[in-house]
Each structure stands twice: as structure tokens, then as C-alpha cells.
Design a protein around this nucleic acid. Structure first.
Length: 425
RNA sequence: GGAGAGAUGGCAGAGUGGUCUAUUGCACCGGCUUGCUAAGCCGGAGUGGGGUUUUCCUCACCGCAGGUUCGAAUCCUGUUCUCUCCGCCA
């Protein structure tokens, strides 16, 4: 959510940003409603001030008749105030509804464009795509041959899009998680395991829309809880309503959680096997920081993602996401796309991580502030998030890139200490 | 899951419907006084919104959310967290 004053003072820039992002917002309506709200608010405040004055004076009035008259006056002022306040509240609801639809401003260097076609490749990983001297299998073939991935079993217990991981692939999954956590701890991240559910208002604060027909979010009946689609939600919500000390920033957290996505409207999209599933495990990074730190930290998160995939010896490219593809909260976003030899006809790039600088967009909604010692006032922190590993897609990349002619999979050196094997299968 | 007790400013801690502003102490900041130190005296100090424009004014905030009342830290309802006890469980 953008600051309301900022919107009013920078209306042309905000409008242009909506155009860049392909979002239509009722900005003129917001301006008009805000004017009305301010007028009603001033009125309500004035009635309230008078009513307070009268109420304070009543204690001193001893004569019963006079007292009754003053009480009546107070009652009347209070009801005028209530009427004006109701108007304020109604307008406020309408304004907030519009305000929440306005996307974050975009980084000046973010590519302008309507969709992912405008995304801009900015870097490549250390490792180039392999040339295979045998027929390449995709992860599903490898997985079903070795009994590692069972979608039929997942469908029987749970439904389409769910799966069991089995056998040595479980060890690979856990090894990747451990490697990531160990690496992140050395980089100053506090490791956590977060709840897999969160309240709907936290999801909304992070920028998800938990209700509605298009929602990507599973809700739990008869509660206000939702299954999280990423630990960004729980990590970002961790300090909702809190004021952090400036010296404690930047605060780097990482968290393991399960992630649940309905993938509404995704049916039919190219998404074989583990690529698009309803549940997966993720190691997520999240940072709370001072405004002047967020650009540099965004580069840091991107570097970490690159290094982690370099450690897995997987080819990837880094993409600077175009304005039309940023979503609501991001100011700038980088995606890593790993080479997946089994995807499409002769291999394709597939998104494996994403890191966003959300500036103060989430912290304003969640009310996460910071305070500097000996300085009056508080400000909103900046928040950033980034994927260390989405295990489902990381597994695709490892299996397909490191497969051998016999269907076994070579384990990259960096994972071997955690897996205690040089290959699986 | 059940019963009880509690939550007040950076900290401690008073405040059971109105008396000028949430008492007081510690810590903090400024000033004054004192031959050092210690102490003393005076004053200031939180967060958020609105107005005014450099000086203030005003409103809201006593875990959170509602309610009663002309008026709520105080009364009522719900809720969260903490502590004690009981039950259950991994």
C-alpha cells in the first residue's frame, strides 16, 4: 500500500506507474473521496472537542436542573459527532479499498513492459547447460523409474497435484534444505521453521488476496486461517504491529515451511510433474531493513540465490522483471530461471527463485515500524524476500541436469556432506 | 479443554465513574545551585492522526476489539498473551 499523502502529492507519477504495470485504479475517485473524508473528519473532531469540554465541566455543576441541561447539551454534541464520524468511517472504508488496489511504485531501472516478454536477462550462472550423449529423460521419468515420485498415490490420498516423495529423493530433498540453512546461517540469517497457516489479515498485509474466486489460497473452514503459499507470509507477519529498533536492522530471517497453492486457472498450462503442484516445501529468505539499505540488500539476496544454484552446479539465467509482471507489492524483482533439460522439446528455462524488494509497501499494511535511538518518531521498515530453494523445482533441476545414462543422478559436491552419497539411484 | 490471577509510559508501580493535565520512584535530557564527588532545586521528555507554520493548538492511544455513559485506565462483553493449578496428549 502506498502512503495516502504520497499518492495525493504525486498523482501523475502514480497514474503512470499504474499504466506501466497494467493495473487500473480509481485514482480520481480516491482524491475526491479523500477530500470529503477530511472535511467530515474536521467536523467530527470539532464536535468531539466540544463534547469533551462539556463532559469535563459537568463534574463542577451542582445544581440538578442546570446539570440536566448540560448533560443534554453533551448528549447532543456527542450524537452530532457520531453522525460525522460514521460518515468518516464509511468514506475511509471506500478509500482504503481503492488504496489497496494501487501497486507499489517501480524501481527506475526496472524494465517497462506489459508482461514477461519485456523481462530482461541480466546475468548467467557459472555453469553452462550440459550436452548429453544419451537420450535425456525428464524428472518424472527418472522419478517414476526409481520410485521417487508418486503422483498416483498423492491423488488417491489427497487429489490431483499432490504427490509422495520416496526413497533416496527424500534424502536429496532434506540435504538441499540443510545445505541452504547452513549457508544462510553463515550469512547472518536467523533460521526458523514457521507455521504453515496464517490469518487472512496477515496474507492481505503481505499482498495476497485470500478470498475471492481467483484466489490462489486455501482457506480453512470456520476459522480465519489460510494455508500459506510461501513463508514470506509468516516471516513478514512476524513483527506485524511492532516497532523495531533501528540498530537491530537489517534483520535477516530464513524459514522453512510448506507452501500451498490452489493454482486456480492454471489448468492446461505446461506444468508436467513437480513444476506446478499444490504443495511443496520452501526455504525462504526475508529481510526487515532501513529504507536506505534495501537496494543493496536486494542485490545481496540475488547474489545468494545465484551462489546457491552455482553450488548445485545448475545452469541458470537471472531476469530483471518487467513492470507489468511485478505484481502489487514489488518495487523490483529478479527471477532465477534454471535450465531444465527435460522441459519442452529440448530443454527450457524454468523459474526456480524470485527475490523482491517491497520497500515499505508491506510494512505499511502490516504496520511494522522502526525507531532510531534519540530521534523522535518512527518510520516504516523496508521488506525484502527471496527464495533460497523451492524444493519441488530445485529437485527438477538437480534430477534433470545431473542425470546419468543409467538413470542414476550424480550429486553435486556441495550437497555430498549432507547426503553422504555421491549419487542416487 | 477447565478454573483462578494478571497485563498501565524505557523500567518499576499507584490509580473502583468526573475534582487542572494518568500519582510517584528509577533511569534519561536541559537548566540552576554547590569548591571535586555525591546530592539538591526547576523544567522537559512517548506513539499516531488533523490543523497551524517554526510557534503552538487539538484529537486518539492504559494488552487488543466492541459496548454502557454527557463523561471509562476504572463498569459490561468478547479476545490475545503471561503466570498458577487441574485434565488430556505427541
Amino acid at each position: 500500500m502506498l502512503d495516502r499523502k504520497f499518492i495525493l502529492q504525486n498523482l501523475p507519477a502514480v497514474k503512470q506507474n499504474c499504466l506501466d504495470r497494467g493495473v487500473s485504479c480509481e485514482l480520481d475517485r480516491l482524491v475526491e473521496l479523500e477530500q470529503q473524508r477530511k472535511a467530515a473528519d474536521t467536523e467530527a473532531q470539532e464536535f468531539n472537542r466540544q463534547a469533551n469540554e462539556v463532559a469535563k465541566s459537568i463534574g463542577a455543576v451542582k445544581d440538578p436542573e442546570q446539570r440536566a441541561a448540560v448533560v443534554e447539551q453533551g448528549r447532543s454534541l456527542r450524537s452530532h459527532k457520531d453522525a460525522a464520524q460514521r460518515k468518516v468511517d464509511e468514506l475511509e472504508v471506500e478509500i482504503i479499498a481503492i488504496q489497496r488496489t494501487i501497486p507499489n511504485m517501480a524501481h527506475p531501472a526496472a524494465p517497462r513492459g506489459a508482461d514477461d516478454l519485456a523481462n530482461c536477462e541480466v546475468a548467467r550462472g557459472k555453469h553452462a547447460p550440459r550436452t548429453f550423449d544419451f537420450p535425456v529423460k525428464d524428472h518424472l521419468q527418472l522419478g517414476s523409474e526409481k520410485g521417487w515420485i508418486d503422483f498416483e498415490g498423492g491423488a488417491r490420498t489427497t487429489g490431483q497435484g499432490f504427490y509422495f516423495l520416496a526413497g533416496e529423493l527424500v534424502l536429496l530433498d532434506l540435504a538441499i534444505q540443510q545445505m541452504a540453512i547452513e549457508y544462510l546461517m553463515q550469512r547472518g540469517f536467523i533460521p526458523t521453521i514457521t507455521p504453515d497457516l496464517a490469518r487472512a489479515d496477515i496474507l492481505e498485509g503481505i499482498g495476497f488476496m485470500p478470498r475471492g474466486p481467483e484466489t490462489q489460497v486455501y482457506s480453512v473452514e470456520q476459522t480465519d486461517l489460510c494455508l500459506i503459499g510461501t513463508a514470506e507470509i509468516t516471516l513478514g507477519g512476524l513483527y506485524a504491529g511492532q516497532t523495531l529498533e533501528a540498530e537491530s536492522l537489517p534483520l535477516r530471517l530464513c524459514g522453512i515451511s510448506h507452501c500451498y497453492r490452489t493454482e486456480a486457472g492454471a489448468a492446461g498450462r505446461a506444468s508436467r510433474g513437480l513444476y506446478r503442484v499444490h504443495q511443496f516445501t520452501k526455504v525462504e529468505m526475508f529481510v526487515f531493513c532501513l529504507p536506505e539499505q534495501s537496494d543493496a540488500l536486494h542485490e545481496e539476496l540475488r547474489d545468494i540465490e545465484c551462489e546457491l544454484f552455482d553450488l548445485l552446479e545448475i545452469p541458470y539465467r537471472v531476469v530483471d522483471t518487467a513492470t507489468g509482471d511485478l505484481g502489487g507489492p514489488a518495487y523490483r524483482k529478479y527471477d532465477l530461471e534454471a535450465w531444465m533439460p527435460g522441459r519442452g522439446q529440448q530443454g527450457e528455462w524454468g523459474e526456480v527463485t524470485s527475490t523482491s524488494n517491497c520497500t515499505d509497501y508491506q510494512s505499511r499494511r502490516l504496520n511494522v515500524r522502526y525507531k532510531e535511538k534519540d530521534v523522535k518518531g518512527t518510520h516504516f521498515v523496508h521488506t525484502l524476500n527471496g527464495t533460497a530453494f523451492a524444493l519441488s523445482r530445485a529437485l527438477i533441476a538437480v534430477l534433470e541436469n545431473h542425470q546419468q545414462a543409467d538413470g542414476s543422478v550424480q550429486i553435486p559436491a556441495a550437497l555430498q556432506p549432507y547426503l553422504r552419497r555421491t549419487k542416487i539411484g
